[in-house]
Write a protein that binds this DNA or RNA. Structure first.
Length: 444
DNA sequence: TCTGGGGTCCTAGGACCC
DNA sequence: TCTGGGGTCCTAGGACCC
């Protein structure tokens, strides 16, 4: 907290209750992916839009208009084609370069308007306003909302409360209720109560579908009932995580505010294939490509991995096929971020788990037991000359790919044809991250 | 024909040690 | 005849999030 100075010395010996002090805002971009598509294509305004998952599999994001048509979250694309055609729904493959870039622009704007910010996901951030009791928070949040849309074109909603969970709930109401103009503070007990009385238990942050069902079986049906549930009972029947949610609903902050993002514990790269794969040679291309991608991420973050794991699986949606899934991992002789070495071990694992005669649907690589490059424990057998050479090579590869576009330089093992490559047939341009795809303005 | 990908945390149970 | 118990580490599985 940055304004401890403002605490009056005469009251400083009385520990202030954290409940009274903690105040947090959740800023959430409205229909983020759909809004991103609209920024560079204003014709999409007021029209139904959906964005598809990788492989153009299912709808992972929807504009309000698409929601109104009854397209559910996660709907498989092939099951909603009729609605799409009938209502001329605009359909996009996901364009993560674009969304990632716009996300960081939004976050930079938020950083300028709050002291503490915790970036929670690609489209959400918590802002810590604890101790700013004199600030007119409502007015300030309206200003934030205006500034973000001016700087980035992305509309946001802001919810404010005495705990993260309550801020989440406030945000939800701000989005749903036009009278709030996109900003709602439910810190006042009367408003908190009103909000919790109407909210279904399954809509509380931290309560997924499994626990919602179980809670409802016990008669806990709305957020207010969860708030009033016996804490011990919740911890015994569920776990301590849900116990924290109960406290949060009572306005007792129990989920910490984390300004500095924790370093990764694991990095995964996996994809479903565009079409089923049977030959190990093709699986190897995929595993090599995913490994290279994961290793690149590792290096970009200044990390090393100690363990690599590979998994392959058939499709559970093809019951006619015989099913098989397996995974295995190897602890490396020493921590590394060298793509070639990781691919080498990835192949050893793949050889050990591959079974002939199955139609594989997906493969993936996970890097586990990740450590920062600084101050890591060097193996007794480490060959420092070899290591230096590998570092130099990787540095060059990363530099070239950054300059000339990703995958300009790659490993032979990654292959070229990539028959297994995912479908991505409706992608918009990388407007902001690729010179070739920058939008052209035409004067008439 | 067509159903995503990338994360975190917690818990229970087994192995192992003293 | 009598056959401990507590701590720690690891792993798999299950829950959650976006």
């Amino acid at each position: 907290m940055k304004n401890l100075d403002s605490i009056d010395a005469s009251t400083a010996h009385v520990p202030p209750t954290t409940e009274a002090m903690f105040k947090v805002a959740l800023v959430d971009c409205n229909n983020f992916y759909a809004s991103c598509e609209r920024v560079f294509n204003p014709r999409l305004e007021n029209r139904p839009i959906i964005i598809l998952s990788n492989n153009d599999g299912c709808a992972v994001a929807r504009s309000n208009e698409a929601k109104a048509l009854g397209i559910p979250m996660g709907a498989p694309f092939h099951k909603i084609r009729d609605i799409v055609q009938k209502h001329d729904v605009q359909v996009f493959s996901s364009n993560y370069e674009l969304y990632g870039d716009l996300s960081s622009r939004v976050m930079r704007t938020l950083e300028d308007m709050a002291f503490d910010i915790e970036i929670y996901s690609i489209d959400e951030a918590f802002l810590n306003f604890s101790g700013f009791s004199l600030l007119n928070l409502d007015a300030h949040c309206h200003k934030i909302k205006k500034t973000v849309v001016r700087n980035t074109g992305i509309p946001v909603s802001i919810g404010i409360g005495p705990s993260k969970t309550l801020a989440k709930i406030a945000n939800r109401l701000a989005k749903k209720n036009p009278r709030t103009k996109g900003v709602l503070d439910i810190s006042e007990p009367r408003l908190t109560k009103k909000a919790l009385d109407i909210l279904r238990v399954g809509d509380v942050w931290g309560v997924g579908s499994r626990w919602a069902r179980k809670l409802e079986d016990y008669g806990v049906k709305n957020a207010a009932q969860l708030r009033d549930a016996d804490l011990r009972w919740i911890e015994r029947k569920f776990n301590v995580v849900l116990g924290r949610t109960v406290l949060e609903l009572r306005g007792i902050p129990s989920i910490g505010f984390d300004e500095s993002p924790k370093s990764n514990q694991s990095i995964t790269s996996s994809r479903s294939f565009g079409k089923k794969v049977t030959a190990i040679s093709q699986l190897k291309e995929a595993v090599a490509s995913y490994t290279a991608k994961a290793a690149e991420k590792l290096r970009a973050k200044g990390l090393l991995t100690n363990v690599i794991s590979v998994f392959i699986t058939t499709s559970r949606f093809s019951p006619a096929d015989s099913q098989y899934q397996n995974s295995a991992s190897i602890t490396l002789p020493e921590a590394t971020s060298d793509s070639a070495m990781l691919i080498h071990y990835g192949f050893i694992i793949l050889d050990s788990i591959y079974r002939d005669g199955y139609r594989y649907h997906k493969a993936g690589v996970m890097l586990l037991d990740i450590v920062p490059i600084r101050g890591y424990q060097q193996s007794l057998f480490s060959d420092s000359a070899k290591r230096a050479k590998s570092n130099k090579l990787m540095e060059t590869v990363d530099l070239l790919n950054k300059k000339m576009g990703s995958n300009t330089v790659r490993f032979g093992a990654q292959g070229i044809q990539h028959e297994w490559r995912m479908r991505r047939e409706r992608k918009s341009s990388a407007y902001t991250t690729c010179w070739k795809e920058i939008p052209v303005i035409q004067a008439i």
